[in-house]
């Protein structure tokens, strides 16, 4: 349904997107996961037809976006990162305007507006000017504006950034509702949990490139059944490194004063054996946490840093 190939976009000397390519099938929720500055928003701007790629091509159902932009855009819904709303109008008026742009009118428009107001939980506040809305409510309306015309494809650019957990939960529920109806969604986020919870397939991006792509299970399998072990204590990193160096299947990935992160192969001696060795060496161990294989771990393996850094 959506096919992006060899996308490149530079701003001066900065290559914001560097050869990105992917395919998204109909009804799929495809996630672009990466830290800030990874190139996610630039990729989304190109998909929305707001930025022309320097190289590469974007096709929707075989139609080239660059050749027939309006035909493609009519089928798209866009949910920008920052709410783009008319604050002096009510939620219903905003929705009627955006729905009208896509050719909806009369009862069809009214029904579409009611449907998305219900979906995002704003039906009871629909007639109030939105300047009185909370940040979370504005984000929900922002989502509704991208859905009101019933698009076949929705581009959602970090729709939950900077909102409270309750509003975030409502947005995630709405997104699930959208995909349940067969709409294709491309969703960018830098929240691991969101990507894990929502996405059918995930592309991990950093520095303008896709580093890995697949379903959650496929990606985690790439970690190779390793666990992430964070060790805290009053010891020098060199001392700990000396202890674990001789252990097979154990590697130091991050070291800071008083904190070292190890990856431990589950098929080898395991975490218990590693901890036994550390204690046996007389190191002052103050705390240990163990994470099962995750996207964060994959990101760490691929980039040498954690996604949360």
């Amino acid at each position: 349904m959506i096919e992006a190939t060899g996308l490149v976009k530079s701003f001066g000397s900065l290559r914001a997107v560097d050869g990105v390519g992917f395919q998204v099938q109909k009804g799929e929720l495809y996630g672009l996961l990466g830290p800030n500055g990874a190139g996610k928003t630039t990729t989304m701007s190109m998909l929305a037809g707001l930025l022309a790629p320097d190289e590469g091509q974007i096709r929707f159902d075989g139609v080239d976006l660059a050749v027939r932009p309006l035909e493609v855009k009519r089928q798209l819904g866009v949910v920008p990162q920052e709410p783009a709303l008319y604050e002096t109008l009510s939620a219903r008026e905003n929705l009627r305007f955006w729905g009208g742009l896509y050719g909806l009118a009369g009862r069809e428009l009214g029904a579409a507006v009611d449907r998305v107001l219900e979906l995002v939980g704003l039906a009871d506040r629909a007639s109030e000017p939105i300047r009185g809305y909370s940040g979370g409510m504005k984000r929900r309306l922002n989502l509704a504006l991208g859905l009101v015309h019933g698009p076949r494809v929705v581009l959602m650019d970090e729709p939950t950034v900077g909102i409270d957990p309750q509003a975030r939960l409502k947005i995630l529920e709405a997104v699930k509702g959208v995909t349940a109806s067969g709409t294709t969604v491309i969703y960018t986020t830098h929240y691991l949990e969101e990507a894990e919870e929502l996405c059918d397939r995930i592309a991990i991006m950093d520095h303008g490139k896709i580093l890995a792509e697949g379903t959650l299970d496929e990606l985690i399998r790439r970690v190779g059944g390793r666990e992430l072990v964070t060790v805290r204590g009053a010891f020098s990193p060199d001392a700990l490194r000396g202890v674990v160096a001789s252990l097979p299947g154990v590697a130091v990935t991050t070291e800071e004063p008083g904190r070292i992160v190890l990856t431990v192969d589950r098929t080898g001696r395991g975490v218990v054996e590693v901890l036994g060795q550390i204690l046996g060496a007389g190191l002052d161990l103050q705390g240990v946490s163990v994470q099962p294989p995750s996207l964060n771990m994959l990101f760490l393996n691929l980039t040498g840093r954690e996604l949360r850094d």
Binding site: G49, L70, K73, P83, Y86
Partner: peptide, 14 residues
């Protein structure tokens, strides 16, 4: 500044 320009141009408005 509102971002509504981007949003319109991402839609069917040239």
């Amino acid at each position: 500044a509102l971002g509504t320009l981007r949003r319109q141009l991402a839609g069917p408005v040239t």
